[in-house]
């Protein structure tokens, strides 16, 4: 009877309003059979962490184009860990300069997807990271 679905929160932290990428990714994740909670633009790290908690998601996907990733993304990870969501996988999609990639990884962001990533790569990545309990 048990029906386990992978739940993914897709959020756009920060102030840029370009959410087309986030919507395309959200749609692809839906088509991959995930339950996608889409929160929309201009989310603070606090709002994202709170939504991730209430929705008990397995994955948080952050879409960011503004260049503020080094402040916003580690903050989301920090808040998630602080509220007891140690195992939520955090991904970033958008424009991240090469120099920042290792720094983000060190801050606990497992997947970083730049322009040109196929949506299938993201889907495969999530399947690999989140083992579904029977």
């Amino acid at each position: 009877m048990s029906e386990r679905k992978i739940r993914v929160l897709v959020a756009k932290p920060g102030l840029d309003g370009h959410d087309r990428g986030a919507k395309v990714v959200a749609r692809s994740l839906r088509d991959a059979g995930f339950e996608v909670i889409y929160t929309g633009i201009r989310q603070t790290p606090q709002m994202i962490a709170e939504a991730a908690l209430q929705e008990d998601v397995d994955v948080v996907g952050l879409s960011i184009l503004s260049g503020a990733h080094m402040t916003l993304c580690p903050k989301v990870v920090e808040l998630l860990r602080a509220q007891g969501q140690e195992n939520v996988v955090v991904l970033v999609g958008g424009i991240v300069p090469d120099d920042d990639i290792e720094k983000l990884r060190a801050a606990g962001i497992t997947g970083i997807f730049g322009p040109g990533t196929s949506t299938q790569e993201i889907v495969d990545f999530i399947h690999n990271q989140v083992q579904v309990a029977a």
Binding site: K5, A26, R27, L29, R30, D31, A32, G33, F34, E35, V36, I37, Y38, T39, G40, Q43, T44, Q46, M47, E50, A51
Partner: peptide, 18 residues
Amino acid sequence: FTGGALLGDRVRMRALAG
């Protein structure tokens, strides 16, 4: 078809955040 879903109600509920 896919069993997936896009749950978008939070977009309208940001006033309740925090």
